[in-house]
């Protein structure tokens, strides 16, 4: 059980920069209420951010070129089907993990 000074500083720094954007909206919106156009805009955030987070894994950018991750793309197909079919978080996650393991095993 050891901790290096470097890692300690990293943990403290990262804790602060993660915590502040997490709690700021809750403090801010407790005091002020947002105008209609802003709440309209925010209503799109869940769908956009989830899409962006999924798409993020589809490729890596290297020197101005996008390298497509075919493993990721292939594993996505059964995952999407499982989600559409079962509407279950747990089943989708299991199907996804198994699909990814199989894709890697056979490639």
């Amino acid at each position: 059980m050891t901790i290096s000074t470097t890692m300690l500083l990293i943990i403290i720094g990262c804790c602060l920069v993660t915590l502040i954007p997490r709690i700021a909206p809750f403090i801010l919106l407790k005091k002020v209420s947002l105008p209609k156009w802003m709440t309209d805009w925010l209503s799109y955030i869940p769908i956009c951010i989830l899409t962006a987070l999924i798409v993020q894994g589809m490729w890596t950018a290297e020197q101005g070129k996008l390298i497509i991750s075919w493993h990721y793309m292939l594993a996505l197909i059964p995952t999407v089907i499982a989600a559409l079919w079962t509407r279950s978080l747990a089943v989708t996650v299991i199907v996804g993990v198994v699909a990814m393991a199989l894709v890697r095993m056979f490639s």
């Binding site: 769908i47 594993a75 509407r87 989708t92 996650v93 996804g96 993990v97």
Partner: peptide, 23 residues
């Protein structure tokens, strides 16, 4: 850990959350 496909649990969950919301 990648051989087990565990790293794909997170994107899989995002897929489910997105699709459930759209449905």
């Amino acid at each position: 850990p990648t051989v087990f496909g565990l790293d794909f649990a997170l994107p899989a969950m995002f897929v489910a959350l997105l699709i459930i919301q759209l449905q």
